[in-house]
Amino acid sequence: MYKNILMPIDGSPCSEQAVRHGLELAKALSAKVHFLYVLENPAQAIWITPESVPYGLELLEDLKRVGEEAVGKALNLAREMGVEATGEVKEGLPVPTIVEESARHDLLVMGTHGRTGLDKLLLGSVTEGVLHRTKTPTLVVRCR
């Protein structure tokens, strides 16, 4: 039924819980997994002056390194569990990038913190944004 599973990750403990859950499911189904870390360019989110450009580029490189480490950690866990997996760091806006990638998979597995109230308003929810836009069946892992 599900042979290609997409697992967006962000390196957080919540994301790691979702990865473990998704990998257990993938192993049971003999499915392949693709990990996706979406790197949002900080230049798009904050105001950058000409003087701060070198720092912005350094920040972007640091963020890429964090993404690559998260993907590497997830790939190692998949290998340990005997699940075939690939992974990538892709630059873009998280929700549309995940939705676009999800169209090429049978199942999407994501974690959520389950924020409510002011936290939800201020921090938003990538998972909720994806749920409202994707047509791919989605398993949401509520984190402790």
Rank of each mutant, 00 (worst) to 15 (best):
M1Q: 09
Y2M: 09
Y2S: 10
K3E: 07
N4G: 09
N4F: 05
I5R: 00
M7W: 03
P8G: 03
D10K: 03
D10G: 04
D10V: 04
G11H: 06
S12E: 07
Q17R: 11
Q17D: 10
H21G: 07
L23P: 00
A26H: 02
K27T: 02
A28D: 15
A28M: 14
S30M: 06
K32W: 12
V33P: 08
V33M: 11
V33Q: 07
H34G: 03
H34W: 11
L36Y: 04
Y37G: 02
V38W: 04
L39N: 05
E40Y: 12
E40N: 14
E40T: 14
E40W: 06
E40C: 12
P42N: 14
A43C: 11
A43T: 12
Q44E: 15
I46N: 05
I46M: 14
I46D: 07
P54M: 10
L57A: 12
E58N: 11
E58R: 13
L59S: 11
L60F: 09
L60T: 05
D62K: 13
D62R: 09
K64D: 02
K64L: 08
G67W: 03
G67P: 00
E68R: 13
E68A: 11
E68T: 10
E69F: 07
A70S: 11
A70D: 01
G72S: 11
G72D: 05
G72Q: 07
A74Y: 00
L75D: 08
A78F: 07
R79G: 14
E80Y: 02
E80I: 04
E80S: 08
M81E: 06
G82N: 06
G82P: 02
A85K: 07
T86S: 15
E91M: 07
L93I: 12
P94D: 12
V95H: 00
T97Y: 04
I98M: 06
V99K: 09
V99R: 06
E100Q: 14
E100D: 14
E100K: 15
E101D: 06
S102I: 04
A103M: 12
R104M: 13
R104F: 13
R104E: 14
H105I: 09
D106K: 08
L107A: 01
L107M: 03
L108R: 04
V109Y: 02
V109E: 06
M110W: 13
H113M: 10
G114D: 04
R115K: 14
T116C: 03
L118E: 13
D119S: 14
K120E: 15
L121Y: 13
L121C: 06
L122K: 11
G124I: 14
S125E: 05
T127Q: 08
E128G: 09
G129N: 08
G129F: 02
L131T: 00
H132N: 12
T134K: 04
T134M: 08
K135T: 15
K135N: 15
T138S: 15
L139R: 12
V140G: 01
R142G: 01
C143L: 04
C143P: 01
R144H: 09
R144I: 00
